[in-house]
Write a protein that binds this DNA or RNA. Sequence first.
DNA 1: CCCATTTTGGATCGTTCAGTCCATAACGTG
DNA 2: CACGTTATGGACTGAACGATCCAAAATGGG
Lengths: 191, 191
Amino acid sequence: MPRPRTFDEDGAVDAAMRAFWTAGYEATSTQDLCDATGLGRSSIYNTFSSKRDLFDRALRRYVDQFTAAQLEVIQDADVPIRERVRRILWTAVEPDPVDPAGCFVINTIVELGPKEAEIVDLLDRDHEVKLTALTTAIEAAQATGEVDSEQDAAGLATYVFTVLGGLRVAARRNATPESQQAVVEATLRSF
Amino acid sequence: MPRPRTFDEDGAVDAAMRAFWTAGYEATSTQDLCDATGLGRSSIYNTFSSKRDLFDRALRRYVDQFTAAQLEVIQDADVPIRERVRRILWTAVEPDPVDPAGCFVINTIVELGPKEAEIVDLLDRDHEVKLTALTTAIEAAQATGEVDSEQDAAGLATYVFTVLGGLRVAARRNATPESQQAVVEATLRSF
DNA sequence: CCCATTTTGGATCGTTCAGTCCATAACGTG
DNA sequence: CACGTTATGGACTGAACGATCCAAAATGGG
């Protein structure tokens, strides 16, 4: 009868996610991962085949969680589109204080984008899902007259996510909500 | 009589700048720096006291060059403000093809921001210079009626740089100019 | 109680890391 | 030609890296 595992795999991936999110892939050592997860290196290598495999798992976990949360906001047809966009942008201005600074996806694109095509593919597909959802929501808002029909819905959606990216970068150097509020307001003028 | 140095210090810093800009601080080894600069490790350690010292020099060089170029555009009073902002944003959409992807400053903020306060201070000061210059330019444009006087000039300037940051992130995953053009157009609606 | 299987702790491996060391090279002066 | 000084090439150091190994632990069934 095998020895029962004493840790929760999802909990370990979550802890690793936060370590990678904070420091980045290269600067997070296997010892850091042991410390963050509370596991020995044999347990880590027994469960995940490599540091890189754990990183991929962590990134997918982040994408699943945060994309689901964002889609929920985007697709809430009971809320005016302007308020939905405001809420999305505000998550970058006033994030959950227990979370590391910025966005794990943005950090990874910047750190690994030029050399890890597989990771970029994964994140591009995720981005496409969110972009399509927001474009659809904007088109629906254009149909009801909430948003100017002359505007390109897909371009507007790309614009919102670009601003979001910029806000996430600002969060990495601890820009204050006060200084970023004007950015949200300026962005919302398109809605 | 001492042996004459056979390399150009600025050229070496420039080469190192491109290596760090491409891969980031952690993922650029001292061997990578030797390869990029064409120098031996004794020459590098003889001239720069450490890898980190060379990184700081490279970052300052980037900041000096690109800030000077940006200020030149921002402060050209012969050009309408809208066109000046368009030019700034366009440098991220269609950068010099020989340059690494994205922006060395943005990459560094994301990679090192949470743990290197000195680097953040340096980059915040640089950011403040550009922000002040653009705010002053926007205020001048408001005085001539080019820009709506009701708008907060500093907020508008912060907004432009945030969008620029987002465009730089998109460049790290090779987003096409076509997809980013709509972002520039949407941003310019505030001008 | 023994067994087979899986998990765990932590020592260890081979490689790479940033940085140092040492012998040699390149000068112009005396 | 020798000297003193600085630069250079590349071998080397000690530490850290990601990953592997091995002994011990933890189980339930027979």
